[in-house]
């Protein structure tokens, strides 16, 4: 351990005690300042001792990976599910958080150069207000009926994804089987095999059986909403219609007074 590392270690010890004391005293501002210093000291200690490289930035290929996974699923899906599908089929993992801000990057890219890309990763639209649905990813080129989500859609999309995955040529591979097992555990009549192994055909049949129960109502709601969505502008059709835009336009709803910082 070089002399310099010893000094660093002593400095790290002091900073740690100081950060903990200021956090305990509830003085968050000082804590934030000291913590930054501490991270810096720790990073230089890592570099000096471990030689760790800089963390990876979200490269362009995250977009392709998301699109590929969404194609497999064929239905709006949450970032965690998209990441799980990618990991099962292609190994490695794109953390859910990097996927979450992918949607924001795509919207920014679209607004700066509309339609520059063939396929955009974009939001699902809620059936009632056509607003961006929280925590869902879709592909811009999908038909509106598939991108709009109603009250039953969360369940129907889950079942659709199960059927699509069960039908995937590589459904027999262990990683995909483990992913299918988590679907099977939550579909009545589907989970029969021992841990980690799933009878894909049985899963697909069970999923289809439940899907038929909801499909009619779900399709009706999505079709009606899709018709309304068709009248939206390009950007809003892809990334959702926001009330704020409406408020700005016509000075709509009175601003909510107690809209303080959410604790």
């Amino acid at each position: 351990m070089t002399l310099e590392a010893d000094a660093l270690e002593a400095r790290i010890g002091e900073l740690r005690a100081a950060v903990r004391r200021s956090m305990a005293a509830g003085d968050r501002a000082t804590a934030r300042r000291l913590r930054a210093e501490l991270r810096e000291a720790e990073r230089s200690w890592d570099a000096a001792v471990l030689g760790g490289g800089p963390p990876a930035r979200p490269g362009p290929q995250v977009r392709e990976q998301a699109l590929r996974a969404l194609d497999v699923l064929g239905a709006p899906a949450a970032p965690r599910l998209v990441a799980a599908v990618h990991a099962a089929l292609h190994g490695g993992d794109i953390t859910g958080s990097r996927l979450a801000n992918l949607r924001r990057d795509e919207e920014r890219a679209f607004r700066s150069a509309p339609h520059a890309r063939a396929h955009y990763v974009c939001a699902a639209l809620t059936a009632d207000l056509l607003a961006p649905a929280r925590g869902l990813l879709t592909v811009g080129s999908w038909p509106l009926e598939r991108r709009v989500v109603g009250r039953l859609s969360a369940r129907t999309d889950f079942l659709t994804a199960a059927i699509r995955l069960a039908g995937h040529p590589r459904h027999g591979e262990p990683a995909v089987q483990r992913l299918l097992w988590r679907f099977a555990a939550n579909i009545p009549g589907a989970s029969g095999g021992a841990l980690g192994t799933v009878d894909a055909a049985a899963l697909a049949a069970a999923a289809q059986a439940e899907l038929d129960v909801h499909l009619g109502a779900d399709r009706r709601e999505r079709a009606a909403a899709a018709a309304r969505a068709a009248r939206l502008g390009d950007a809003e059709r892809l990334f959702g219609h926001r009330l704020r835009a409406l408020r700005a336009a016509s000075g709509g709803l009175p601003h909510d007074p107690s809209d303080g910082e959410r604790r």
Binding site: R16, R20, M23, E42, D46, G52
Partner: peptide, 19 residues
């Protein structure tokens, strides 16, 4: 102690995972 977890242990574990 929660402050030990947040300020000392979590970064150390993260570094262990990272390295």
């Amino acid at each position: 102690d929660p402050t030990f977890d947040n300020e000392v242990l979590a970064p150390a574990i993260a570094a262990y995972d990272g390295a």
